[in-house]
């Protein structure tokens, strides 16, 4: 499993924690043609992303291939504290998946 595709910035201000994350992923749409062979390049994209804080899901995204390359997501949740750990799990449409962690600043 290829780990380490996510870059996460999480910061708590007041009661809300804002999370910004960027995944390093090509998000191949399945619409593009190979310039040499003229054949369609099969779609390869992140399909699901789940963020957990203290074993509770705080964010879940179901994605299609029309999300931009190197997808970016931002959301805010209540209850996070500085130093807490976020557990992020991603799944590709190929079935490949990975779990990463990030700390809240």
């Amino acid at each position: 499993m290829a780990n380490g595709i996510l870059k996460v910035k999480a910061k708590t201000a007041g009661s809300a924690t804002s999370v910004k994350m960027m995944a390093k992923h090509i998000m191949e749409s399945g619409q593009r043609k190979d310039k040499k062979s003229g054949e369609l390049i099969p779609a390869l994209f992140l399909q699901n992303l789940v963020v957990k804080h203290a074993d509770k899901v705080v964010f879940e995204a179901n994605l299609g291939p029309s999300i931009s390359k190197n997808p970016y997501f931002a959301f805010k949740f209540e209850g996070g504290a500085s130093g807490d750990e976020l557990v992020l799990t991603w799944t590709e449409n190929s079935g490949k998946s990975g779990t990463e962690t990030a700390a809240i600043k």
Binding site: V57, L63, S68, K76
Partner: peptide, 30 residues
């Protein structure tokens, strides 16, 4: 949803209790 895209649905975000209804992302448009 992006109406004119080959597949209009871009993303679905699940908002559990305690998470604010405030989400940003970037999409492709044909």
């Amino acid at each position: 949803f992006v109406e004119g895209n080959p597949s209009p649905l871009s993303a679905e975000f699940i908002i559990p209790a305690g998470t604010q209804a405030d989400v940003s992302t970037r999409v492709r448009m044909g």
